[in-house]
């Protein structure tokens, strides 16, 4: 156990140092959700008060404009960078465990997610928006969301991207439709029944609905239990995909 913790913290620490040194990604991950929150918050406010509008838009923006790009796009770019720098090969010949590597990425992006959460809710607070429900429950949803995003990012990074140019493709092709279907930008109430049924298979739908429920409507765990079960299942799937993908990278690396 001690070994896994040591490896995980080493990987997380390294990723965070690199992100801080490079800065560009961090700046984008702050600017984009900030602008989206301001735009959607002000659009939905119409001529009336902004507090209700920011209450409702902050969770969706946090999931869809902040965590989606950092925690899904970030790991994809990370895997590609490891491949291009050939450090992946070095990691694969080391005793580093696949679970430790995956968890290291999760932990690093947990910190990024925490920072984004503070920024998004800080801005919403400035406009009168509030987090109405249990903060602890909100954090659980965010942790599960980060797990699901990182798992998906790791999977796409390992399976579908070989070069930097490949990064945007899978994120745009698979991710953006999931964002729309998940109700990030529009309420899911406008979806036709067959699309709503499909949305239940979209992790982003459950992230949005769970966080909106807790944050804007003060719902408790019992009210969002279905979403929590789905998110838990996606988390387990993410862990499975993460470790499997590490093994697939090993196979690719063997081929040179």
């Amino acid at each position: 156990m001690k070994r896994y913790v040591g490896e995980t913290t080493a990987v997380a620490n390294r990723i965070l140092i690199e992100l801080i040194r490079m800065r560009r990604s961090l700046i984008f991950w702050v600017v984009f959700p900030t602008l989206m929150l301001l735009l959607f918050g002000l659009i939905y406010a119409g001529g009336g008060g902004t507090s209700k509008s920011f209450d409702a838009t902050a969770p969706g923006i946090l999931i869809g404009a902040a965590l989606f790009f950092s925690c899904l796009g970030g790991p994809v770019a990370l895997i590609v960078a490891e491949r291009e720098r050939r450090t992946l090969r070095r990691l694969l010949v080391s005793p580093l465990k696949p679970v430790s590597y995956f968890m290291g990425i999760v932990v690093a992006y947990m910190f990024i997610a925490l920072g984004q959460t503070i920024i998004v809710y800080g801005i919403a607070h400035f406009f009168g928006g509030r987090f109405h429900g249990s903060i602890l429950l909100g954090l659980v949803i965010i942790v599960l969301s980060v797990f699901s995003f990182v798992g998906a990012g790791f999977f796409f990074g390992a399976r579908f991207t070989k070069r930097t140019e490949d990064v945007n493709g899978p994120v745009a092709a698979f991710g953006v439709p999931l964002l729309v279907l998940g109700g990030t930008f529009f309420p899911v109430s406008i979806l036709p029944p067959y699309l709503l049924a499909l949305a239940y298979l979209d992790p982003i739908f459950h992230m949005n609905e769970a966080l909106k429920g807790v944050s804007a409507l003060d719902k408790g765990p019992g009210d969002i239990v279905t979403h929590l079960i789905f998110l838990g299942a996606f988390t387990v799937l993410a862990l499975f995909l993460g470790t499997r993908s590490y093994k697939s990278m090993l196979i690719q690396e063997r081929k040179g």
Binding site: G6, R85, S94, P95, L96
Partner: peptide, 20 residues
């Protein structure tokens, strides 16, 4: 095959921890 944005010491530290 080392991390270009890390210092020499940070690289050695990282791999030392990976190797236990």
């Amino acid at each position: 095959c080392v991390y270009q944005d890390l210092t020499c010491r940070e690289n050695v530290f990282f791999f030392a921890r990976i190797y236990g």
